[in-house]
Write a protein that binds this DNA or RNA. Structure first.
Lengths: 376, 376
DNA sequence: TCCGTCGATGGCAGCGCTACCATCGGATTG
DNA sequence: CAATCCGATGGTAGCGCTGCCATCGACGGA
């Protein structure tokens, strides 16, 4: 008659009673069947099915001081890049017992700190966090997290534990060098919101131009105070890029520097906007104006003309982060603390000044240059 | 000397001891400070800070037979639509105690069933699931879930509990009617992977054309066996669209039906591909060929020419789903079981046959038609 | 034959928190 | 002034599971 506080669902004890075994044997049969004899295992399986038993993960997590939750922190859900990373993470998780809990930091370090604190209350099995620019409190939490921590999408000499990513500086530098090589001289840099990774790209762009002796700060809307853009204009709340932004930013840049002959866009979405702006102005790409993007999203190849971009391996980063996490959870050694997955410079018609004006630009296969990172 | 199984972190009992109060009072102060006197509350807060106490959510969930996890099932992470829905969900969650756990069903009903079963092990606070075409087992689980369940992104007379979405059939029918109105007569329908919502759109398209007496099954690559596309060609593994797919599918459709004068694309990404294909062929949009998309993603407005689309309120759907969930958790009544958020037909240059060929098509503001759903 | 070992199984005692009920002093009411 | 009520607080007993250790029988070597 005592009021039980259960929700009426069968527990491991019910299964044990029905199967005529001890509760702990049921527990073992569920977690690692090899520990239990065939006969009992069958009995238990039957009882589980008969009762429709569903394990309570909260109880399991409490008893073992460890949950099955993998916390993932990304700065944006809207950007395709992180959608690809997440897809890699989900593919890496597969049908394991692990569960994903995603936090959206919105590029806000305080929000990241708050989300991290929340995640830790779950006693997560592991953590995957984007980037290396955590604030001091977040960094401390990560270091004392008592679970594997993987940083992704950037590189650092000093990761919390393990980092998987690539050099945004080197990638942007390589693409800028390509633009120089094919003959562009007044190369602009177009960016919306600047985050730490964008800044790495900007510095790569600047370095390539300085090496060639043709850097001109008037050619980037992000020069000087690198964070200024974030606070400027009508996009102060937008932490993501749109093609409309690309069009407007390119127009602005042209106003201040009409002799610009190419633009390297901080991401493909801006590049798409730049292409539309050129089309609206009746400019020929690549002959009148060159355009390059960053990330090589689907539409870059399909655009007309097809657009050059830096291919980044987002899926791989997410996937490999999970694989590394699982390795660590399985107790396997992992001495490679810093993993550079590299990038590819994909050269297409939008930066090919020698291209013949053809009807379908896709006919010619794009040239690729493999840079950094190991082969995979 | 007995071996404790803790991980060494302070517990609620430690806080209680330091503050000189009972454990339960600490628990109350943490969950609802108004239940505790000011004096004790301050003492407790001080003790919490001093010890760096972090509540263990697994223990809380076990004791209260209810966790703070909201399970969300989406069919795709790559499609922008669901990224927008997720953003709405995160914005709706805000800084509440609730946490999001996203499952990616990949448009696979069995996978959905599996993920649902996994989620239920957490005793979730609520569930948000995409669509209405769950299999029987999933449906049963949802009905017996013992927590609020919100279905989203579609409409149904018979939701599990509450549904928030819009009619894909009506939206597609309205856009098709627009294409007819402006004078197109051989209107194609372009689709990649067909899911239940795509099928709704196709049926709306067919109905509008049949009403006008100009339906021709040769004009859609999805006619006949609606699922056939999924298994066909090189995209059998792709459950998402790319602009390259749009280009190729449009070419195929032209091959079989060269007189086609417009195309309604199942999503904007395909529409972008269609535009690129027209540009590569030197066709004028909208005069030679009309293009309309679905969802009205960012780039539709920025394209050159700007492209018509059906604006869907994905953010709103996600956001309102969470708000409804929170209401139910707070015990507030909610009698509106079926919520239609409607859609807008956004008419732009890509379907404006009367448009003058201008340099910048964006100059003219787009016309919008508001359809279905209440004002918000 | 005896003892040590090992695999299979079970009992017990928590894991850290909260539901439930009891207690207690002060305010309210007739 | 006694009866009643109510807000604040605390004690107890779980929530459902697993870590630790004990037990037991089979087996092999000395």
């Amino acid at each position: 008659m005592s009021k039980r506080r259960t929700d009426g669902r069968p527990t491991i004890a019910d299964v044990a009673a029905l199967a005529g075994v001890g509760a702990i044997t049921v527990s073992r049969a569920l977690r690692d069947p090899s520990l239990v004899s065939d006969m009992l295992r069958e009995k238990i399986d039957t009882a589980v099915r008969e009762l429709g038993y569903v394990p309570n993960l909260n109880a399991r997590a409490l008893a073992s001081t460890r949950s099955d939750v993998v916390g993932v922190l990304v700065p944006s859900l809207t950007q395709h890049i992180f959608a690809d990373v997440l897809r890699g993470i989900y593919d890496g998780i597969g049908h394991t017992r692990l569960h994903i809990q995603v936090g959206n930091t919105r590029y806000d370090l305080d929000e990241e700190e708050r989300l991290l604190a929340e995640l830790l209350r779950h006693k997560p099995a592991g953590l995957i966090v984007s980037g290396i620019d955590q604030n001091a409190a977040s960094r401390r939490m990560l270091e004392k997290a008592n679970c594997p921590v993987i940083q992704i999408m950037d590189l650092s000499d000093n990761p919390v534990n393990k980092i998987i990513g690539f050099s945004h500086h080197n990638a942007a530098k390589a693409m800028t060098q390509h633009l120089i090589e094919v003959g562009y001289r007044r190369i602009g840099f177009l960016s919306g919101w600047m985050n730490s990774r964008s800044k790495g790209r900007l510095s790569g762009y600047v370095e390539a131009l300085e090496d060639a002796g043709i850097f001109d700060p008037r050619l980037t809307n992000a020069a000087g105070d690198l964070g200024a853009l974030a606070l400027r204009g009508s996009w102060d709340k937008h932490q993501y890029s749109t093609p409309a932004m690309g069009r407007e930013l390119l127009s602005e840049l042209w106003n201040s520097e009409p002799r610009m002959d190419a633009v390297f866009c901080n991401n493909d979405v801006l590049a798409l906007g730049a292409l539309f702006e050129c089309q609206a102005r009746g400019l020929s790409v690549p002959n009148d104006f060159g355009i390059a993007g960053f990330n090589d999203e689907d539409f870059m190849e399909a655009a007309s003309p097809a657009m050059s971009s830096v291919r980044t391996h987002r899926w791989t980063v997410g996937h490999d982060a999970v694989i590394a996490l699982r390795r660590q959870l399985d107790g396997e050694p992992d001495d490679e603390r810093i993993v550079d997955v590299g990038f590819d410079i994909v050269k297409r018609a939008s930066t090919d000044r020698r291209a013949q004006p053809v009807r379908d630009d896709d006919a010619a296969a794009p040239q690729q240059t493999r840079t950094a990172g190991d082969d995979r």
